[in-house]
Amino acid sequence: MTSPIKPPDGNWWDQPVNRRESIWLGLGVGWSLILFGWMSAWTRVGDQNPIGETFRIDAEDYREKLTDYKDRATETDDGLVPPDRDVYLQAMRFQWDGAPVVLETGTEYDIHLNSFDVQHGFSLRPEDALSKQINLQVLPGYEWVVPMTFDEPGTYHIICNEFCGQGHRSMHGTIVVEEG
């Protein structure tokens, strides 16, 4: 009685399982554990994790921080040079306030991300290697501090990848990374 549209008779639980199916079950368990183990271990030993401290903050309070940071930063032709390791960015329809910013390779920066209005997407890649790209969600009401250390100099482009309104497609900023 092995029709999927008829009730199975008798003690179907104790029916033997084909040997090849049993082997496959073993492979499946093994693969599942590898998937979990690798992902979990990478949060401890890996260099790429979407992990950072998060704080709740009002958009206006974050704007004050951003303004204070801009006052302390040095303006250059390529963009703002941050006064220390903290870099503040605020997404707003339809720009990245705080960008362009000039950073150095080999220094760990704390990138502070927040949105002034609606949800945005922080999508970053170097100009000359589009396949090296990362994407983080940016939410109003939250300040996310994600550390980053760039190892290659170049111009990195930020585009918004969460629909934020009619001008969404024009929302672009840059991070210029110079040899440190």
Binding site: W24, L27, W31, L35, W38, G46, D47, Q48, N49, P50, I51, G52, E53, E108, S131, K132, I134, V146, P147, M148, T149, F150, D151, E152
Partner: peptide
């Protein structure tokens, strides 16, 4: 199914290879 598992593993390795090409991100 073994072919499927092999495709799974290869795709997994390729995706992780691409990720490790990135700069250092996150705490």
């Amino acid at each position: 199914c073994l072919v499927f598992l092999a495709a799974f593993a290869i795709t997994y390795l390729l995706n992780w290879y691409l990720l490790t090409q990135l700069w250092s991100i996150g705490a």
